[in-house]
Design a protein around this nucleic acid. Structure first.
Lengths: 211, 211
DNA sequence: GCAATTTAATCAAACGATTGATTTAATCGC
DNA sequence: GCGATTAAATCAATCGTTTGATTAAATTGC
């Protein structure tokens, strides 16, 4: 198998279990026996395949980077021609991000794992930052800079992009609070659309007021 | 001591240790010995004062609710007279929230603890939700509804308020990512101001485009 | 082609270390 | 001296890891 193929077999089962349990309860709070049980294998398999619990954590991080690479795709090389195009591209990317964050059972585990590593300062953090956050943020800054007639790497632009991103991320992190307050039982298609519409409108309002 | 006074002595030391360690590494990942060491006392004190580790967790939740009650103050009973006043009040509350989220070493632990309880579905979650999130969100909805000429409890208004809140919360949760990308070493006064200005501008742009 | 051998993978069992909790003794304030 | 705390010692349970045995698939030697 090539490097970019999804793992298969017991290795894959353990990584899936790791993403799920590490993301849901945290690394330290997840016993190796729970991982093995979920992966329908023996605890010794963890040491055999990954050298230990910590090794599985790193493998999960690599898998996350791989999955995200698939979703995000290669960063666009050429910038759009007009401000209008830049705005449209920004909106499309924001909407895609909302869908990725709120939909898909696999994305659920992926996002939860990343957030855990983030707050725990886990070793998978650097991996995901370099592989995803940084290039994606740069891409968004280029678009936002174009939409606001400002340098892409200006402090104002970078901060602006974070404030746009933050809105989307919050709906994943704060899901329990949000769903309770909204009277939702979860994020199905209708809720995702409502969120994406809201954030897209916010983005256009913010960028329109900027120049 | 009355109910609203901050605890003192070993109890207070243990609660401070709990907020710090539970928030930083999670509940399950924090050994009682680490709690006792940080509080400069013995492990048995935890059982003595709180009945056990779980009791300390609840006491931390209560302390968080108490602190937040101090910061948030009593919800305003009367609504502002004009749309302009509503906007000003919203901006003031948003700025206060950013300061609370980014500044203050005590707030750091408090916020981290809440977020942990949130993602772990801990027993302190209901406490904080009822004591803080819900009334504060209602208050913001009333103001936002006034600023946009919409019913305060309309689904659109509630979602709008969440999208405003999300921006602020993200800057606390994503601090490691944000600081690295911004070239900051942390949130000092200058960074907090930059964030608050950005979010205030976003809020005004969003609400202005609404009606 | 086929037995002999090696390798990869999984398993149950057990290891030492650490966990939260408990018990017992010492200490403090008054 | 006495109730309220704190400290030290110990408990069973659980943690991550290691072990030696077992199975199945490749690989080798001829």
């Amino acid at each position: 198998m090539t490097q970019d193929d999804p793992p298969a077999g017991t290795r894959a089962d353990l990584i899936a279990a790791g993403l799920h349990l590490f993301g849901q309860q945290g690394f330290a709070a997840t016993p190796t026996r729970a991982l093995a049980a979920l992966a329908k294998t023996n605890v010794a398999s963890i040491a055999y395949h990954f050298g230990g619990k910590e090794g599985l954590r790193l493998a999960c991080g690599a898998e996350v980077a791989r999955r995200i690479g698939q979703v995000a795709g290669p960063p666009a090389t050429e910038l759009p021609a007009t401000r209008r195009d830049a705005l449209d591209r920004l909106e499309a990317m924001l909407r895609a991000m909302v869908v990725f964050l709120t939909q898909g059972p696999q994305a659920q585990d992926t996002v939860a794992f990343i957030l855990r590593e983030l707050s725990e300062g886990g070793p998978a953090f650097d991996l995901v930052y370099d592989a995803f956050f940084l290039p994606k943020h740069r891409e968004l800054c280029a678009l936002a800079g174009m939409a606001t007639d400002q340098p892409a790497e200006a402090e104002e632009t970078r901060l602006l992009v974070f404030s746009l991103l933050g809105q989307a991320v919050y709906f994943r992190i704060g899901q329990p609070v949000i769903c309770r307050r909204m009277g939702w039982t979860g994020y199905s298609a209708a809720e995702t659309t409502a969120i994406a519409d809201r954030l897209a409108a916010n983005m256009r309002a913010i960028l329109r007021s900027q120049p």
